[in-house]
Nucleic acid binder design. Structure first.
Length: 400
DNA sequence: CCTCCACAGGAACTGATGGCGT
DNA sequence: ACGCCATCAGTTCCTGTGGAGG
């Protein structure tokens, strides 16, 4: 993690700084976003256009892989529209929420409500039924004659939540206008998963998918242009070597065309170069940045694991071999040592799959004939890393 | 060709938490 | 004071399975 104090001190000490404007080196920097997304911006604008004429636009579905700028474009278009109508008596309210950050259906609805200025009293964070929360949202819109645009990011997660709980909130959201006497509600769904629509209730598809916009992946050339534009504004002239720029673009563009990653890479590389008091960002810095970002991610997710999952990771370190059975007995031993109640086998299997999702371990199903079926897990990080990340956990002190 | 291992992983349930409306 | 609601971590019970060994 780059320490802001260090950075400032380093820069001051050397009397030279190669980064002029750090803000530009964040993907989500909005003021003249340079994203190569002209046609998509046009499309989004067009489908939201009816709102200027005080009629309700169609609901909108936006697809695109991470780092393609979907969210940025949507937010930008809406805020532009807001500027236009600011003085009219036709206020437009942008309400944004990310279904991945709000882990529950309730939480998501509450976060939407908060942005409509419903306070704790009007909309408590717990205790109500989902339908009651929903009713209050609509009431607020109706009473305030608000024209709300709900932007729901990663809407595929929301769809999953809904499938689990059996509530048809998405359907109700898309049809909310029929229940509103005043004000309006427009839904903009953003999804990474292009196949997500197939899993939806057909009634939802017909109203949510009225308009669809697909953001294609950036190719390496486009990423390069995006980086160049940011470099021009953010860095002192001629401080980023061409080869470093190319490497950034290649690393990020190679797989998914993720511009966010490319820009992060560039920023971290710049910071590393500054710290080394170098006056150029080189390919070496980019490679260092890549590693740093990865390690950082690993350490953060390691620290964030709950106690039992940490125990499992330690158990994996100690177990020789790593089938679920072996991990489980090793885990039981550790529990005994630290004096904790052990959890069931089933729970451990589940936790292992959860850990696998973070990429810290990888699993592979193997069939050993008469010796049954197991999943063999492998640690993808060094044990030093694990020890480093767990050193602050008191309970684990003895077994590290 | 059949059996049977050693688990995977789904589904339904439990109990605790925290807070609502009436 | 009461019943109700959503959520979370964890448990119980369950069905499913590729292929080595007989």
């Amino acid at each position: 993690m780059s320490d802001p104090v260090d950075r400032l001190l380093d820069a001051a000490e050397s009397g030279k700084s190669i980064i002029k404007n750090r803000d530009i080196l964040h993907f989500s920097y909005i003021p003249n976003i340079i994203l190569h997304r002209d046609s998509e911006q046009k499309q989004v604008t067009q489908s939201l256009l009816p709102i200027l004429k005080q009629s309700r636009p169609s609901n909108l579905l936006v697809y695109g892989k991470p780092g393609t700028g979907k969210t940025l474009v949507v937010k930008r278009v809406i805020s532009k529209i807001q500027e236009r109508v600011e003085k009219s008596n036709f206020p437009i309210k942008l309400v944004y929420s990310n279904s991945k950050e709000e882990t529950t259906l309730y939480g998501l609805l509450v976060s939407l409500g908060r942005q409509l200025d419903l306070d704790e009293k009007e909309l408590p964070t717990t205790g109500l039924s989902i339908s009651e929360v929903f009713k209050r949202l609509l009431n607020k819109i109706s009473e305030g004659k608000i024209n709300a645009i709900f932007v729901i990011d990663e809407i595929d997660y929301l769809a999953q939540l809904i499938a689990k709980t059996g509530k048809d909130i998405l359907y109700q959201l898309t049809r909310a206008n029929e229940r509103l006497e005043q004000g309006s509600l427009t839904l903009v769904g953003i999804s990474n998963d292009l196949t997500f629509k197939e899993k939806l209730d057909p009634r939802v598809i017909s109203s949510l998918g009225e308009e669809e916009i697909v953001f294609t992946n950036y190719n390496v050339e486009q990423i390069k242009k995006i980086l160049e534009a940011r470099i021009n504004e953010a860095f002192v002239e001629n401080t980023v070597e061409d080869s470093a720029l190319n490497l950034c673009a290649a690393l990020a563009g190679g797989e998914h065309g993720d511009a966010r990653r490319a820009i992060d890479l560039l920023r971290v590389a710049g910071e590393i170069a500054e710290r080394q008091q170098s006056d150029k960002v080189t390919t070496k810095n980019v490679k260092e940045a890549k590693q740093k970002i990865e390690e950082n991610k690993e350490e953060l997710s390691l620290e964030a694991f709950p106690l039992h999952e940490k125990l499992i990771i330690l158990a994996m370190m100690k177990a020789n071999g790593s089938s679920t059975g072996e991990i489980y007995s090793s885990y039981k031993n550790l529990c005994k040592i630290v004096g904790l109640d052990e959890l069931t086998n089933r729970r451990i299997t589940q936790m292992l799959s959860e850990i696998e999702l973070s990429g810290i371990i990888t699993g592979r199903l193997i069939h050993q004939g008469i010796h049954g079926r197991t999943k063999k897990y492998k640690l993808e990080i060094s044990s030093e890393m694990i020890k480093k990340a767990f050193k602050d956990e008191l309970t684990l002190k003895d077994i590290i």
